[in-house]
Design a binder for these strands. Structure first.
Lengths: 199, 199
DNA sequence: GCCGACATGGCAGAAACTGACATGTGTGAG
DNA sequence: CTCACACATGTCAGTTTCTGCCATGTCGGC
């Protein structure tokens, strides 16, 4: 049994299955206009039994996690690709808008994200994905910002950056996604990092 | 039927019952060292039927809401009492530490809050209570800070203040509650509001 | 003392989960 | 090539959470 690679072949398959089920759930949610679809229905549409669904997603709402994890990873990857000579605020703006071609969302995605923002159980899952992003941002800011003494001075700016982004994004989503997202992000991040730089 | 007062007599009673059930749940959680107690047990200990429990708390985890709402209201009240001549950062520090005598938590409260921080379902309820605080903070900051043009410039600082406080508080709780909470809060709030004042 | 609003309780049932066991499929050793 | 084992899935029964419905009781006003 090969144990060399980090992601086992089995795990890779499980991950793909989870992603497929998540995608199915997303389509059902958007089609319904709400998130009340029963597990039985989602599982059937994805071609698995309810038992298998629950094996991969102990709590029903976990089903959207793969979607958020994917975008989190996209942001992290985009941030890695930005040269260190770029202004930190710009780098972060670029990273967060990289996943959206032209700063535009498809109507499908917009409806889905609106559901996620307006349903507290699902919003929590989004926030948990953001949590993982915090680590990435913290690592980036570590390189680009003067270091503080207390451990909080390392994690707090990253935490604030992520939450500021959330706030901006939620505002942008719920207000119709017509405003200039990059501009809003820039303003917000400048506000946050202005305080961090003072340290 | 008197409809003059805002909180109906009936509603007031319901609120008291909810608070009592919440308190009971808290005691059971702390005694058990985890939050897995069944609804049946909490309801019985509180002297109500499971049916009544669910009438007041549609989702089991909602049971802790009254506890967080109470402290949120305490913070809001403390902030109202601070004279407007006080430095905003100090005012917020005072407001948040007002509920804790000498910045100390009882061992009972510490154990409970540790459970709340480490259990995502319950953490969500805490965050929702914080959400209401955002409004209060936004109102306060409106009076004390220069106003920005975009609506985000009004809500974002409040949002960040609340989240920064959360982050500090969670760090403080999980690291043993031995550090100087007021000092940590002061540093964090200074960082946040430094950026806000720039606007 | 009567009436009506309202909260509670009990019961049946839906939906979300979980443990145990059996089946199928693929992969590596011999 | 075949056997054996690991592992994911499905089925089934059972627990827990949550909901609709109706009967009962209690409290406040007439």
């Amino acid at each position: 049994m090969p144990r060399g690679e980090r992601p086992t072949l089995t795990e890779r398959r499980a991950e793909e299955l989870r992603a497929a089920i998540a995608r199915t759930a997303m389509e059902i949610f958007v089609a319904d206009g709400d998130t009340s679809a029963k597990v039985e229905r989602i599982a059937e549409a994805a071609g698995v039994s309810p038992r298998t669904f629950h094996r991969h997603f102990p709590v029903k709402e976990d089903v959207v996690r793969p979607l958020f994890r994917a975008t989190s990873e996209a942001v992290a990857a985009a941030l890695r690709d930005v040269p260190d000579t770029t202004d930190p605020v710009e780098a972060l703006v670029v990273a967060w808008t990289a996943a959206m071609p032209g700063g535009r969302l498809s109507e499908f995605d917009r409806r889905f994200l609106t559901l996620m923002v307006t349903t507290s159980e699902y919003r929590l899952r989004w926030q948990e994905a953001d949590q993982e992003l915090c680590e990435v941002i913290a690592g980036y800011l570590d390189r680009r910002l003067p270091a503080g003494g207390h451990p909080l001075h390392r994690t707090l700016p990253a935490y604030l950056v992520v939450h500021a982004t959330r706030h901006v994004f939620e505002h942008w989503i719920t207000s119709g996604s017509e405003e200039d997202l990059a501009g809003l992000l820039r303003d917000a991040l400048r506000m946050v990092l202005a305080g961090a730089a003072v340290r």
